[in-house]
Design a protein around this nucleic acid. Structure first.
Length: 948
RNA sequence: GCGGAUAUGGCGUAAUUGGUAGCCGCGCCAGACUUAGGAUCUGGUUCUUCACGGAGUGGGGGUUCGAGUCCCCCUAUCCGCACCA
């Protein structure tokens, strides 16, 4: 009988469904293992071959772990909130819930065809009220907690209030807690809450009508849609993720992730050590502006002399400071600018503030700035230093003010050159050979070398000078060691419809959270998905969108009276809200009393293996780690890190095919290798589905589009050969490979094996179906082998091969090297086929080994061997080490490192015997020539080398 | 600019981690069986050479009896960050 995958695959998929084969329980005597895929956003385009790559890899591992006797949690769900469904709704009026539902159904159908071992009873959807109830719940917890820096963990905000009330903790502002009004206290606490409302500069995207997080903006354009993004001051919800910056860096030490991804996260968090230093203003020249400056200074640090704070990672270069720079947003500018400079400064500040993010980033190389007319004093040299304003200093980092050392910082160098400011060298790799900085073409930024012209640190190594300067400024009381992070708080509001509503209402303008017992706060129906005419987010269209505090329910917003009925928040949460804790919800997805039960989380702990794309390195993977750490602080999650091991599957690129149309004759197409083709034709993208092994199906091409109906061809060897190129997978290039077509043609098992055979899972690679036939052929051979099964016991050769295969496959899976596993299967099956027949016991072993990779055929073969149960319940075969040992080993024998001949020697032979055997071999005489060898190297089971 | 990764036949890749480079598959060549083949099977296939032989893992140097693998310097490609002081 032929290998009929069309019959086998649906049959076993039904079997699994009916028998709940993949149902997973939260209790078992077996050890537990949690394998997770990054859940997909169900887009309208359906799955392409890139999606399943990671799913297949994780499915192989999940199935393998199960066969190894683990209780495996392997769930799947949908990240169902998001912009595309909403954009589609705006264009068509179709409710996002309907399109999302439809897309999910399509995804599910496609996923089912691939034979995954997901426990669908645990499915979650972020847009499901039973799910987003807990997203909202977590938000309320974030709102009600602050970060205690001493204990280094989140604590209830009520604890903070208690400490403030008792006076055991003074407020950080000049006003004591007791003297504050209720509003002042609320504002004060808002500075501590982990979810807080603040006026912050945000990435505003007019086209999408929403703000975006930093990781959702690339080069000043939105990731979704590529629309321009502006900088704008808005009142927004944010998550105080920066409070966790240090722990997010430290946690990377504990996890088993690729070095490159860890590095991406470290760069994004951007920890840098340095010093905060207060530079006093030059009181004499600034006498007229002192009152304003004084007010600013009192906020920073009470200093006897008016001064302002800067941050530097190079305190050792403080002797080389020749000017200071403030960012255009700096609060001090207004009060220190001299009357002569005021007009110029104000013009510059206005210009800088109105510049779009895109312009600013595009013109990074252009130097701009303006002198304030004010001076600061270098606290170590007591020199008078001019204070400038420039947009190369960023408001969001450090204190928005820097000490400029043009000799040793390339940006300061460019600024100094542009405005003709002095440059003073204070670091040199060779202190005895100083050159005039005026002749330099670039600054010396390197941290290797010695301090020069630097007072008491002159002659020290840079590293020592850094420490010495910090010690000095700490001693003088004008600064201290400090750490700065690049990581900003995450903006959590989106002015969109299709997202989780905030469980927040506004009482006299002050935000209050709705009681947790009233969750979920359901997303209301709206008449229009666009912003309102007054510029409110789409929720402004909802008629039923006000909170009745007394009756604890949502009511018509016409009833807002400011007494018991209050307006609800109109923004919704961003995409990463729902995806930040879904892995925990899978542990206990139907629990309506809690996010997840303590029993469930204590059993599963955290995700053992997480598979997904590296593009989430600075988004989801940071937010989820933050979310988990917060829940850890609350005593809910039990591990600091959510994802123990992480594998990033490589991107699958498209492989576009081309036909070559003659420039003269629009109906004439030349095959790729026809001489002169390059100059006389233009390449045209052609649908990859009508090309096989780069050979064009001419008939299908003529039918493909009306304009090609009369196409004529110039062939080579009777075939039309297409050209190809690696491009992004995209509809417009006709290179999107849809897995359903391949499943229909070759079956899911072939597709699964082939996607793995393509190369290492982690590696990016072009999709190319040219080799799929080979894998299909292999499965047909595997099928044929199973039919040649006999009852006679396996001979020694077969047993040896079996044990070798078990060992190799086991090792390959453990190292996540699935491409080599497929090769191993091919070799074993070829060997066994060559022997003519195979014993039942060996065949059964092979069926179990291949079950993670090709589950359908494995089930069928296992069933044919007389088993009444699923191969999923089988036991992974063990291998016998003694069976792997060969009787003899073929040693390469080399003389002076040059391979000369091979010698079969018994295994476990001693060094003396081996050498004696080599010496007595006739071929050795040629090199020994009667002499004693200088040195003999014998490595058991490896090599014999003789130096003569 | 900073950080990370990668580089092996015509192509995708492999190499027990320092031990005969090129496993497995695609493609190609030859043959068998076929009315036929985009089916199946067998053999061959790094380059060069009629052959003996020689060369060979992006380039150059080094360590070693021995290097695709370790070290140093280049080059190219990909990815991440990018005025982060």
């Amino acid at each position: 009988m032929d290998y009929n995958f069309n019959e086998i695959e649906p049959k076993w998929q039904n079997y699994w469904r009916e028998h709940h084969t993949y149902r997973c329980l939260n209790h078992s005597d077996k050890p537990h293992y949690y394998v997770l895929d990054m859940f997909p956003y169900p887009s309208g385009a359906g799955l392409h071959v890139g999606h399943p790559l990671g799913y297949i890899a994780s499915d192989i591992f999940a199935r393998y772990k199960r066969l190894r006797g683990f209780n495996v949690l392997h769930p799947m769900g949908y990240d169902a909130y998001g912009l595309p469904a909403e954009q589609y709704a705006i264009q068509t009026g179709q409710h996002p819930a309907i399109t999302t539902e439809r897309n999910i159904a399509r995804y599910r159908e496609q996923l089912d065809k691939l034979g995954f071992s997901f426990d669908w009873e645990r499915e979650v959807r972020t847009c499901d009220p039973d799910y987003y109830k807990w997203t909202q719940w977590t938000f309320i917890q974030l709102f009600n907690h602050y970060y205690d820096k001493e204990l280094d963990k989140a604590r209830p905000i009520s604890e903070l209030v208690k400490r403030l009330e008792s006076g055991s903790m003074p407020t950080e502002s000049e006003k004591p807690w007791a003297d504050m009004s209720e509003d002042e206290r609320a504002d004060y606490l808002m500075n501590y809450r982990l979810a807080y409302l603040a006026d912050i500069p945000v990435n505003w995207c007019p086209e999408l009508g929403t703000v975006l997080a930093n990781d959702e903006v690339v080069n000043g354009l939105s990731v979704r849609g590529g629309y321009p993004v502006e900088r704008k001051l808005m009142r927004q919800w944010s998550l105080r993720i920066s409070a966790y910056a240090q722990r997010l860096v430290d946690g990377l030490e504990e996890v088993d992730w690729s070095d490159s991804l860890k590095e991406i996260q470290r760069n994004w968090i951007g920890r840098s050590e340095g010093a905060a230093v207060w530079f006093p203003l030059d009181v004499k020249s600034n006498a007229n502006v002192l009152p304003g400056a004084q007010a600013y200074i009192s906020q920073c640090d009470p200093q006897p002399v008016p001064s302002f704070e800067i941050f530097t990672t190079r305190p050792d270069t403080i002797f080389g400071v020749t000017f200071m720079v403030l960012c255009p947003e700096h609060e001090l500018i207004d009060s220190i600018t001299t009357p002569e400079q005021r007009a110029e400064v104000e013009a510059y500040v206005t210009w800088a503030k109105n510049r779009s993010e895109r312009e600013r980033q595009a013109e990074v190389k252009k130097v701009s700035g303006v002198f304030t007319g004010a001076y600061a004093i270098n606290p170590l040299t007591e020199e008078r230093i001019p204070i400038w304003v420039s947009d190369y200093v960023l408001a969001g980092y450090g204190t928005g003010a820097i000490m400029a050392v043009p000799a040793h910082d390339s940006r300061d160098f460019a600024f100094a050159r542009h405005f003709n400011l002095p440059i003073r060298q204070v670091v040199s790799t060779d202190p005895h050979q100083l050159t005039d900085p005026a002749t330099w073409t670039e600054s010396l930024d390197s941290k290797t070398g010695y301090s020069v012209n630097s007072g008491f640190v002159t002659g020290m190594k840079v590293k020592d000078a850094m420490a010495a300067v910090i010690d000095k400024i700490e001693e003088m009381g004008i600064g201290h060691r400090t750490v700065n992070f690049r990581l900003r708080d995450a903006i959590f509001s989106r002015q969109r419809y299709w997202g989780e509503p905030f469980p927040v209402y506004y009482k006299n303008g002050r935000p209050c959270t709705i009681p947790v017992e009233c969750l979920p706060l359901r997303l209301p129906e709206v008449s229009d998905f666009k912003p309102t005419s007054t510029g409110e987010p789409p929720l402004g269209h909802a008629t039923r969108w006000a909170w009745d505090e007394k009756n604890r329910c949502v009511v018509e917003n016409s009833k807002i009276d400011g007494q018991t009925v209050f307006p609800l928040e109109l923004s919704t949460m961003p995409g990463f809200a729902g995806s930040s804790g879904y892995y925990l919800r899978y542990m206990d997805p139907r629990n309506d009393q809690a996010y997840f039960s303590p029993e469930a989380v204590n059993y599963w702990q955290n995700v053992d293996l997480y598979v997904g794309g590296a593009e989430h390195g600075t988004g989801h993977l940071i937010y989820a780690r933050f979310w988990n750490k917060f829940l850890f602080d609350m005593g809910l999650s039990v591990k600091q890190e959510p994802f123990q091991k992480l594998v990033n599957q490589g991107m699958i690129q498209g492989r576009s095919s081309f036909v070559y149309r003659s420039k003269e004759d629009n109906n004439l197409f030349l095959s790729k290798n026809i001489p002169g083709r390059e100059d006389t034709t233009v390449p045209i993208h052609v649908d990859i589905n009508i090309v096989n092994n780069d050979i064009l199906d001419i008939e299908k091409f003529r039918q493909w589009r009306p304009e090609f109906a009369d196409a004529r061809f110039e062939l080579e060897d009777g075939k039309y050969v297409c050209g190809w190129e690696i491009e992004k997978m995209s509809k417009s290039m006709y290179n999107v490979q849809n897995p359903d077509d391949l499943v229909a043609r070759y079956g899911a098992d072939t597709l699964r094996l082939y996607e793995m055979f393509l190369g290492p899972v982690e590696q990016a690679k072009p999709w190319d179906t040219n080799g799929i036939e080979g894998v299909f052929r292999f499965l047909k051979k595997f099928w044929k082998l199973s039919e040649s099964c006999t009852d006679s016991p396996a001979d020694k050769d077969q047993l040896k091969l079996m044990h070798q295969t078990v060992k190799k496959i086991t090792d390959d899976i453990e190292r996540f090297s699935f491409n080599t596993s497929v090769s191993t299967f091919m070799i074993s099956v070829n060997d066994l086929l060559a022997k003519g027949s195979v014993s039942k016991e060996v065949m059964e072993c092979l069926a179990i080994l291949i079950a993670p990779f090709a589950p359908h055929i494995a089930e069928e073969v296992y069933h044919h061997l007389g088993h009444g149960t699923s191969v999923c319940d089988a036991q992974w075969p063990a291998y016998d080490e003694t069976m792997l040992v060969q009787d003899t080993f073929t040693y390469p024998v080399s003389f002076n490192g040059k391979m000369r001949f091979t010698l079969d020697l018994p295994n476990g032979i001693s060094q003396q015997d081996a050498i004696a055997a080599v010496k007595s071999d006739g071929r050795s005489q040629r090199w020994f020539d009667g002499k004693e060898p200088k040195r003999i190297i014998f490595v058991p089971n490896k090599i014999i080398n003789i130096v003569v």
